[in-house]
Design a protein around this nucleic acid. Structure first.
Length: 367
DNA sequence: GAATCGTGGCA
DNA sequence: TTGCCAAGATT
């Protein structure tokens, strides 16, 4: 399998130049200290759509909590989600644990080293499979992420829209042709390292680029036009009200989100969508949870939280309900917890903002 | 093919 | 402030 873009491109020299540069300039990252397939796997999952600087502290904490696949397989799911708290895309954590359990049961705790087997693991797609196989096992498989598409689209002057799956497949064909010529572990990481350090999205450092002589975009002065990527539509606003219900024992009411969808299985303060001025919707929502409010218990608005997701914006008016609120019936996924124990539960960032402002009284953005 | 699924950094 | 975007996978 070939690609016409490679016809006037010196593949071998490109691979050699890039790999040589990588060996001299690679960053010392925690997952590069050893070649442990499990740790490489964990790092690749965390790095999906997430910056290196963000991942580093999570990776170190996660590995200290779950040093081996066995440790992760045997952990409580909620413990894993707590370790993932704040990192986002929480299905990554649940899929990773499910996959590690599969590795424990079907592969004796050893991360498999074939494309078919690795790709069958939950949360392991085309990129991550290639990354594990090449980085951990030095197999000549392409690992095409955003960095690789940016580097190759510039070097080969390819104007295909990189947001399309078909474009990623084209780059996999190209990257597969290249990785077969060199040391897969170094080369694949070199492509990504170049994208992260030199061939950056904005203002690429072409003057110090180790492959500048190969780069067609630089030769034509079009590096700032590549890669081509379709714009995505702006997130839709959702107006909500959330309530911190506190009982006489100083406990607050929290509920667990559904098993699927946005922020699945994380905890939150009771809330609902509510466009109205008054708090009629939340109050009936609380009633449905079984919360009984005595006459003089008042609902006070104390805060407002704005949180922007990829495709949604939450606008949350936050209320406190104190005094004579009565205890809700025991039920799974709904419970009272002492204020100083909310930290044991995994909360998404917007609700962490509520904890910080309302429960811990820290200064935050008000409005 | 297009949506869904988080978060924080940066110009 | 706003929009873009970062080592993607799943549905």
């Amino acid at each position: 399998m070939t690609d016409s873009s490679l016809e006037t491109f010196n593949e071998q020299q490109f691979c050699d130049d890039l790999t040589a540069w990588y060996r001299e300039n690679r960053r010392d990252l925690p997952w590069r200290l050893e070649r442990d397939p499990y740790k490489i796997w964990v790092s690749e999952i965390m790095l999906q759509q997430t910056r290196v600087d963000t991942v580093i502290p999570y990776f170190e904490r996660f590995i200290s909590l779950f040093p081996t696949p066995k440790d992760l397989a045997e952990a409580e799911e909620e413990t894993v989600l707590k370790a993932w708290e704040g990192l986002g895309y929480y299905s990554r954590a649940r899929n990773l644990q499910a996959a590690v359990r599969e590795v424990s049961e079907s592969y004796g705790g050893v991360v498999p080293n074939t494309k078919k087997e690795v790709s069958s693991l939950k949360g392991v797609g085309p990129y991550t499979a290639g990354a594990i196989l090449s980085i951990a096992y030095d197999k000549p498989e392409p690992a095409v992420d955003g960095n690789v598409m940016r580097v190759l689209s510039r070097n080969l002057a390819i104007y295909d829209d990189i947001s399309k799956v078909s474009t990623r497949k084209r780059f996999e064909t190209i990257a597969g042709s290249l990785v077969a010529r060199t040391v897969p572990s170094d080369f694949n990481q070199a492509l990504m390292e170049l994208g992260a350090l030199i061939c950056t999205p904005r203002s690429p450092a072409c003057l110090i680029c180790p492959v500048q002589e190969h780069c067609r975009a630089r030769a034509e002065g079009v590096q700032d036009l590549l890669p081509v990527k379709a714009k995505k539509k702006p997130p839709v606003a959702k107006t909500m009200k959330a309530v911190v219900v506190e009982n006489k024992a100083g406990e607050v009411l929290i509920e667990r989100r559904p098993d699927t969808g946005l922020l699945a299985k994380l905890w939150q303060f009771p809330n609902c969508e509510d466009e109205r001025e008054d708090a009629g919707n939340v109050l009936s929502y609380l009633e449905n949870l079984g919360v009984r409010r005595a006459g003089s218990a008042e609902l006070r608005r104390v805060h407002h939280v704005r949180h922007v997701f990829s495709h949604i914006v939450w606008e949350i008016d936050v209320y406190v309900l104190r005094g004579e609120a009565e205890i809700a019936p025991d039920r799974d996924g709904l419970r009272w917890t002492p204020k100083d124990e909310v930290d044991y539960y995994p909360f998404p960032v917007p609700h962490q903002k509520i904890i910080d402002h309302v429960l811990k009284g820290e200064k935050a953005d008000e409005s």
